[in-house]
Design a protein around this nucleic acid. Structure first.
Length: 281
DNA sequence: CGGAGTGTTAGTCG
DNA sequence: CCGACTAACACTCC
């Protein structure tokens, strides 16, 4: 599940509880899910929790960082006596006993609270890195879509150099970071632009309209993700509520919310694209 | 059993 | 070196 809005929501929630906690134990249940020397973690205190694109960074007292990518099925669940906090791909792990069969890494803190990293498909990862390692990882990314640095001028200039379909261009993290499939489809629909058009065919006006649409749907997603993520008593409450107001994503055959035409689906770059054939030209 | 899945990256080719 | 394209990662659900 995790797209930028959900990662932002998880980050905000963990930021309320993790700073100040001292790591006493780390258990790596699946080697592939953790890179670095776990022994270096014991005794380190979490200083800060931040997000850039879909990467979460825990800054540690020793000067190193834990960087976390949830990819498609990752979850972070912080468990104390009082509550479960976190989020990610919605599964029963949210409410079942932990560790579960999908738990890959377990961080235990001095106060006996625990942070579980679950990841069904094992695409996600946690890496222990120094400054350079973190910079290396973040250097691959263009500016965050919700960053002020992404101006219409910047965006239009980037698109002008690319001949691939606009849908794939806006999902390219080196253009703008943090736009996944759901928000790419919905933003193109909101901006009334056909996903198959080449990136360099957009006019400045269209590029600007699309950029505003992308920022709009992502911001809306953050608001909706933050609204429902606090209820950990049931799985529904953990999925965020943007899905209830999404425009076209996974709505094949349903009427377009604007004109009523049946929403169609096609393949782009191996992934599904949903669009309205009437509105998006 | 086949296909699809909300993300990224390594490898290939031009 | 850059862009475009494909396969691959590992597992569950329909």
């Amino acid at each position: 599940m995790p797209e930028l809005p959900e990662v932002e929501t998880i980050t905000r929630r963990l930021r309320e509880v993790l700073p100040g906690k001292t790591i006493t134990l780390i258990e790596v249940l699946r080697e592939k899910s953790f890179r670095g020397d776990p022994a270096l973690l014991a005794g380190q205190q979490v200083i800060a929790v931040d997000r850039r694109s879909k990467i979460i960074t825990l800054s540690l007292s020793g000067g190193s960082f834990l960087i976390i990518h949830l990819k498609m099925t990752g979850q972070l669940i912080y468990v104390s006596k009082k509550q479960r906090i976190g989020g990610g791909h919605p599964t029963n792990d949210f409410v079942s006993a932990l560790p579960s069969s999908h738990t890959r890494v377990v961080l235990t803190f001095a106060d006996k609270t625990v942070l579980y990293f679950n990841d069904m498909r094992v695409f996600g990862w946690i890496r222990l890195v120094a400054n350079e390692g973190r910079d290396l990882e973040l250097a691959k990314l263009g500016p965050d879509i919700i960053d002020e640095a992404v101006t219409p001028e910047y965006f239009f200039a980037k698109l002008a150099k690319r001949s691939l379909p606009i849908k794939q261009a806006i999902m390219d993290n080196s253009v703008v970071a943090g736009v996944g499939n759901i928000y790419a489809c919905d933003a193109l629909h909101l901006a009334k632009i056909n996903p198959a058009r080449t990136a360099n065919s957009l006019s400045k006006v269209e590029a600007t309209r699309l950029l505003v649409a992308m920022k709009t749907v992502i911001t809306l997603g953050i608001e909706k993700g933050g609204a429902s993520i606090q209820n950990y008593k049931n799985v529904e409450g953990l999925t965020g509520s943007y899905q209830h107001i999404r425009r076209v994503y996974a709505r094949e055959g349903e009427p377009c919310p604007v004109c009523g035409t049946k929403i169609e689906r096609m393949k782009q770059g191996g992934r599904s694209t949903f669009f309205c054939p009437s509105c998006q030209i």
